[in-house]
Structure formats: C-alpha cells, structure tokens
Design a binder for these strands. Structure first.
Length: 561
RNA sequence: UGACCCAUGGUGUAAUGGUAGCACUCCGGUUUUUGGUAUCGUCAGUCAAGGUUCGAGUCCUUGUGGGUCAACCA
C-alpha cells in the first residue's frame, strides 16, 4: 500500500516549520475558545475540527476554554450548550477552563504593570477617548491622564476594583503608543467597570478584563503553542504579543504562544453571525436556536445531521486565508453520503392518494419482507403489511403520460416496492373531476423475492406505498433554505431579513409504515424515493414528528419541469 | 486618502520554482425492485501588465478587485 500524501493546510505547515525549527512535539497544545454568549454554529465547527483535529494529528492536548470576560452577555445556558455540542461532534477536550479562572492572576499582573508605569487609569468619557484615538490614517493624541503617578494609578485602580466608582467612569489603559499605526496599540483599555454578576464569579469582581488583555495571557498560562483564531483578529496580534511580552517569564512558563489567523467559514443561503442568528431567534422568525433551519450545531442535529457528516464537511471544505462562501450543496452532499450508508430504508407517503387493488381479496393482509438497507448487509430485514387498499404518492400517477414517465398510468405496469407488480385500470373522480381513487389489478405471482418467473419480470418503475389500514399518521416538517439569496448579509444596502424564504417550512400530514411507531427521537431514516428524515424532539405518544433532513437527489424532477 | 491581509473552474481547496489536481455543483452515458446509490465521462480555472529564471499559479514590481482595523464586545 502506498501511503497517500495528504497536503497540509497553512496552519499545519506553520506547525511543521516550528517543529523543524526545534519546538518539541510534546509542547504542542491547542484550544477552542468560545465566548458563552450564544450557540455554536457550523462556522465554529470549522474551528473545532481544526483545533481538535490538530490535537488528534499531533497527539496533543486541546483545551475547551470559555472566553467569559463580559458578564453582560454570557450565560450558563450557553456554557452547557457549547459543552454538549463539542462532545456531540465527537471531540474530547483535555481540560475545561474559563478565562474567569484567571481574573486574580490577571489582576496581580496588572498591579505589576501599573508599578512599572505601563498602565494608567483614565477617567475621561468614552467619547473623549475616542476622539483622542485618531483614525486609521491619523495618529492619536495622549490622554491628559496618561502621566498620572504610579501611586495615584494604584489608588484609583484599587477604588475601581472596590466598586467605589460608577460604571463607565474609569478604565485602566495600557500605556503603549497613541501614534501607533495599529489602532489597537493606541493605549487600549485593559479593564472596565461592570457592576454585574458573572455566571461563575458572581459578584466577586466589578472590574472585568478586556478580550485582548485576557486572551493571550490565558493562552500563555495554559501554554498553548498555537492560538488559532479568525482573520478579523489579525490586527490584534501586535497587542497579543505586547501583552504576552509584559508577563513572559522563561523560567516559569517557557513557551510563548503564537496567534495565527484563518478565514471564517461561510455557508451559502444562510447567515453566520451570532448577532443575526440571535435576531432570528428573538424575533421568532425561527423556533429557537435549534430550529432545524438554523446553521447552529443544535439546529443541524435536530435536522438530522450526523456528527460525522459535519466533520467530513469541515475537513473537505478545508481552511485558508481568503474570504469564502461554501456552497451548502457540499454540506448536503456530506449528510446524504453518510446517511446513504447508515440510514434504514422505510416507506412513507407524503402526498397520499388511494390505490385499490381490485383483484386482491378483501380483508386479506400479508406481511412482506423488506430489506432495511441494501448498502449495509448487516442491516437485516423487516416486515411490512400489505392489503387491498394502499396509499401511493399523487405524483406517482397520471392518467396518461409519455414514455419517460416511469410511474403508474392507466394500462401500464409498475412494481410496488417489496410487493407486487400492478397495472393501472381505472380512476374514480369526484364531482370536480378530481381523482379520488385509482383502481388497479395485481399479478399474484409477481411478489418480490418469491423467485417466480413473474417476480423477475422487469418493469420500468417502482413505487413506494403504505397499507391504509396499517399506516401510521405522522407530522412531517419539510424544510427549505432559510434565505433565498446566496449571501443574505452580503448586500450593503439591504437588510439580510429581506431575503428570508417565506416557504422555508412546510408542515404536512403523512402516512408511514407501522414499523416507525417505535422510532425514537433523533432516529434517522430514508423515506424511500423521498429523502432522509429524522424524528423530532417534539414527538410524543400521540404525535409522531419527522424533520426532513435533505431530499434525495431527484434527476427526474429537474428534467421534468 | 494609512497599515495589514487576500486573489486558482460556478463553489471550496491542492500544487512548498518543474505535467494546474481533488471534491462539490451542472450536464451526459451505463447499472438498478429507490428517477436514490454505484460507475464512466463532458464542460470549466491561475485577476492584469511587466520583470527574474532554462522554466513562474508560486519569486519581484506596478496596477486592479475584495476584505480587515477607529466597542468600556469577543
């Protein structure tokens, strides 16, 4: 066997270079650092698969670290959901950690920085400070408070910490360079006053460190070798490095973490920003974070996506540094490919019309053997009931049709899947001319698997069906893309909600074979000839609910039009 | 009137100075008791102009296009 040479992505190349330049392999360590202010989505999955994938590849630990420095937005509910999603995706973290674990250490370091004259308290309004900050093309000017004495800074900062000042009245700033070409280096804020309870530290603190002053230091404390984030943090890298430099102590913690950036993953026909997803939830445009139309991990799960399909998608899409919009067709391909191999086949009729087999004895019923999954030889068989009156799909019958219509018409034969060959004979119509029943006859010797000559006859079409007497009613939710535009938030002068698809959810009543009575929440099936479906969490004793994960490819419908 | 990042088929990615490849999508053929799957095939790409080199998608220069940066958010 020749080993396949898999090309490295640019992050792996950076790591390989570092290893080649002397970084010991045992020092490799990664982290996935979500802020617990919302649910994880398919874009996060890219980051999760990247970081945990690196951990697997190099046999290195990966921490799950919650970046929880803003109590105004963060909640325990999100922490729990994120933990669940990461493990559901199939990854194991080394340690579960919180930036808030480092508040005291951060505070201690801050005192040192103030003593070294590298940080100062500023009590100007945010408007004043913004004015002094300059613009990307114009340098800023120094704050009048920039040269407070160390003693005064220490005293003011202590008062900030002790809650003696109002929110917004004072901040602590790093003293770097107001003329720096990088805006982030113009005396960035390190601490602000927030008189709010934190979901973990309660009311212990009323000053909270900012992201930049927390992230690199957390990486450093955890000795993360490669801190991988998205592109918009690129310009934060100078600050990241500056902060790490301030506390770096080779004898205590020898490894200096390295921030590297990759492009976030976008998906066509949806939005990925947490703010916009939150808006969809709060305005009840969708039914919660786990609405099956949402690109969240929980939404995809409820829709019927498997962890493996999401991992395959992330790996296949890859990573790079350029803006991208990945075609949702790739995601759909990944789930279809997975489910094709694993999902049991069943019969369900979504749009029923009655079919009567006139030469089949009234009152007779047979239990026919059906293969669960011809792609999986271990999947076995089940029994499905057959009788004189069945439901088939309305679309599977036409009174008259051309040669390309491989379904039931008057005078022609088709096979009923797992059952008999039938021939269309006549129709019954109501006063409006609508067909209410189709009458047909069956060939008694043609039963599937019976081995008779008649059973081996080839007919052009095969239809799925359910026995009316035995069928189980089920609610089926048919989903379409949430937006009608490939990039709903890619239009400068239009709100993304203008592109909402009014038909993204259609609820119907369907009839399914009785074996489905015992289906459990999250069980996935292929409704033959229709698509993949998954049992919804709202299923109960009296109401069986299915979500359509994705339809089967339909090359007939495409040509049909 | 700045700095930084990016530019390969419709989409996403690979080629580490040496045959532009893979996957998805689209389209067509074969097989099929799912118009599914499988399988075979077609179409389709290096932003532009210069330069270096025996040789450039790759290196250099200039241009063009896109993105990021001025929250007491992360």
């Amino acid at each position: 066997m020749s080993e396949e040479k898999k090309s490295l992505n640019f992050i792996e190349q950076i790591i390989e270079d570092d290893l080649a330049n002397g970084l010991p392999k045992e020092k490799l360590r990664f982290r996935f650092p979500p802020e617990p202010n919302g649910y994880l989505h398919i874009g996060h999955a890219a980051s999760i698969c990247l970081n945990f994938g690196l951990g697997l590849r190099y046999n290195a630990p990966v921490n799950l670290r919650f970046d929880d420095t803003n109590p105004a937005k963060e909640e325990q509910e999100y922490v729990d959901a994120i933990k669940y999603d990461v493990q559901w995706l199939g990854f194991k973290w080394d340690k579960i950690l919180f930036s808030s674990d480092y508040f005291q250490q951060l505070y201690n370091w801050t005192i040192e920085l103030i003593k070294e004259g590298k940080a100062y308290v500023d009590n100007q309004s945010s408007e004043e400070m913004a004015k002094q900050k300059g613009t990307p093309t114009q340098p800023g000017i120094n704050s009048p408070n920039r040269n407070r004495s160390v003693e005064e800074n220490l005293e003011l900062f202590l008062k900030m910490k002790n809650g003696e000042f109002e929110e917004g009245s004072h901040v602590l700033r790093a003293k770097i360079d107001m003329e720096h070409v990088n805006m982030h280096m113009r005396d960035p804020i390190m601490y602000r006053i927030l008189k709010r309870a934190h979901h973990r530290t309660g009311n212990n603190w009323c000053i909270y460190p900012m992201y930049d002053w927390t992230h690199g230091e957390s990486d450093y404390l955890e000795q993360i070798s490669h801190s991988i984030c998205t592109l918009e943090f690129k310009s934060h890298r100078d600050l990241y490095d500056w902060y790490v430099d301030q506390v770096f102590n080779e004898t205590k913690l020898a490894l200096r973490p390295k921030q590297r950036e990759f492009a976030r993953r976008n998906l066509s026909y949806t939005v990925m920003s947490k703010r916009k997803l939150l808006q969809l939830v709060e305005e009840n445009i969708v039914n919660g974070w786990d609405d099956p139309r949402m690109p969240t991990i929980s939404g995809l799960r409820r829709r019927g996506y498997t962890p493996s399909s999401i991992r395959t998608f992330s790996d296949t899409a890859g990573i790079s540094k350029r803006d991208n919009v990945t075609d949702v067709a790739l995601l759909e391909h990944c789930i279809k490919d997975d489910l094709n191999k694993t999902a049991p086949r069943v019969m369900a009729v979504l749009n029923p019309i009655k079919l009567v087999i006139t030469n089949y004895p009234e009152g007779k019923e047979e239990w026919l053997t059906a293969e669960n999954n011809q792609e999986d030889e271990n999947a076995g068989y089940r029994e499905v009931p057959f009788s004189r009156e069945l439901f088939i799909e309305k679309e599977d019958f036409k009174e008259e049709a051309n040669k390309k219509f491989f379904r039931l018409t008057l005078g022609k034969e088709v096979r009923l899947k797992n059952a008999y060959i039938i021939k269309g004979e006549s129709v019954v119509k109501d006063a409006n001319g609508e067909i209410t029943e189709i009458h047909c006859t069956y060939d008694e010797d043609s039963r599937s698997g019976s081995g008779t000559e008649a059973s081996k006859r080839r007919v052009k079409g095969t239809l799925h069906w359910v026995s009316i007497k035995h069928a189980v009613k089920a609610e089926v939710r048919l989903y379409d893309r949430l937006f009608t535009d490939e990039a709903p938030d890619g239009h400068k002068d239009k709100d993304f909600k203008e592109f909402l698809n009014p038909n993204s959810l259609k609820i119907i009543t369907a009839y399914v074979e009785p074996s489905l009575k015992t289906a459990k929440i999250l069980d996935r099936f292929q409704f033959q000839r229709l698509g993949y479906f998954c049992v919804d969490k709202e299923t109960n004793e009296s109401n069986l609910v299915f979500n359509r994960t994705v339809p089967l490819r339909d090359s007939w419908a495409k040509k049909g039009v």
